[in-house]
């Protein structure tokens, strides 16, 4: 995928191969694949939170923190990201694929 002057590569699961070169444009481009035409403020709040948490802990945040820190309910998260927090939100936030059954 070409974003600006950068070539973004994905693994076969659609997660970024180099999470370091993530940007807001990349996020919007992945979001489009997820069926999100235009990222809303809530989308951004969640995605930015995931990104920040990951940069600090090298881990995807659990859904509890996602909800409590951003004042959204679980059911809302699934409405915002139809493929769920892992394959939806974490992917948009440019994280590598979390381990296990996701």
């Amino acid at each position: 995928m070409q974003i600006g002057d950068k070539e973004i590569q994905f693994d076969k699961d659609g997660f970024m191969k180099e999470p370091g070169i993530w940007s807001a444009d990349v996020a919007q481009a992945i979001a489009l694949e997820e069926g999100i035409e235009k990222m809303s403020e809530k989308h951004w709040a969640v995605v930015n939170y995931i990104r920040k948490y990951w940069e600090e802990n090298d881990l995807a945040p659990p859904v509890r923190l996602l909800c409590t820190e951003n004042k959204v309910s679980v059911r809302e998260v699934y409405k915002l990201f139809t493929s769920g927090p892992a394959r939806g939100a974490c992917r948009i936030a440019g994280l590598p694929k979390p381990d296990g059954c996701v």
Partner: peptide, 11 residues
């Protein structure tokens, strides 16, 4: 439970 229920899909 499946840990996925704790981390991502608690419903």
């Amino acid at each position: 439970i499946n840990p996925r229920e704790v981390k991502f899909f608690p419903l």
